[in-house]
Nucleic acid binder design. Structure first.
Lengths: 160, 160
DNA sequence: GCACTCTTGACAGTATACTGATAATCAGCA
DNA sequence: TGCTGATTATCAGTATACTGTCAAGAGTGC
């Protein structure tokens, strides 16, 4: 019988579980109420103003049905605005609001602290190596999930 | 602006996402319908017959409210039996059924194949190193999540 | 101009995970 | 014995993630 600790899948689930818990704890202590998923979406919208939901989902590797709810909640909190696109009446352009920018700026120290806390058992070199191995495994497995990471090529092309 | 790829939290989420997708694909191809979570629970019940739900949750680091639904679904599929404990009328003793044993035996090759597929971008040495680093980070962060891993000490004591 | 296909966003349904609460029970102790 | 606090299991509610489906619109080829 193989031990759980020899299964990459079990270790992945456990590490992610801790990462989310640490994120919540640090962010709540800083006085904010954003999930890891909401934070990543908000940051991506901030960097790519006017992005549509599908492209956003590809940028941060979310499922297209998941992104709907995430954007809903961000919009409900007043952190992003969702306007119909003039180019494509199916699409909805996402913009960060002033409140969103304030939240993003205020929450960033807590997010960075969380990144350190979740690897507090590792040295700086070990953390680098862990991230390198995760990036390599993820790159090789990218197409295996329903929500693979996608470069915003279409978006860049549109901007030309 | 820090890149997502420099955030352990983002990498953790992404790797876990791929791991779950790979698990589902391999298991479905083998003709079974079990989630990673259900598999881990079934395997733990097989190894620890008569275990109660809280101890089981601790063994595989699940939240106590999550384990209720997982066991529900395993029982509904006829893979485990849930009987009231004679020692403690609050507790319910979990036993794997014959069908559960057959499923567990049949599914194991697919589960092991999935563990290989999810790290297909890494060499054997890199996989070992990744698992070592994950184990180390998890050990240091164990108490930070609501559902920490717990040794079955109480269970062992009861068996004396 | 029209049919065929693809894309965007959304919905229903299922399965983790968690917060917080509660009923039933057990265990320790005055 | 009887009270108090801890423990087991469950429930309601929220937030990811996914499968599968659908309507509306965009785009292409003829």
């Amino acid at each position: 019988m193989k031990d759980n600790n020899d299964m990459p899948g079990h270790l992945a689930r456990r590490f992610q579980q801790i990462a989310v818990a640490v994120f919540h704890a640090e962010v709540e202590e800083a006085g904010y109420d954003l999930t890891p998923v909401q934070y990543a979406a908000l940051a991506a919208i901030s960097t790519n103003p006017g992005i549509d939901q599908i492209t956003l989902a590809g940028l941060i590797a979310y499922d297209r049905t998941t992104i709907t709810g995430v954007v809903d909640r961000l919009a409900q909190k007043g952190l992003v605005a969702r306007n119909p696109s003039s180019r494509d009446r199916r699409a909805r352009e996402l913009q960060i609001t002033d409140a969103g920018r304030q939240t993003l700026a205020g929450i960033t120290p807590a997010v960075e602290a969380a990144q350190k806390t979740m690897v507090r058992g590792l040295t700086a070199e070990e953390t680098e190596e862990l991230m390198r191995l995760l990036r390599k495994a993820i790159a090789a497995g990218n197409e295996l999930s329903r929500a693979p990471l996608r470069e915003a090529l279409a978006q860049a092309a549109k901007d030309k």
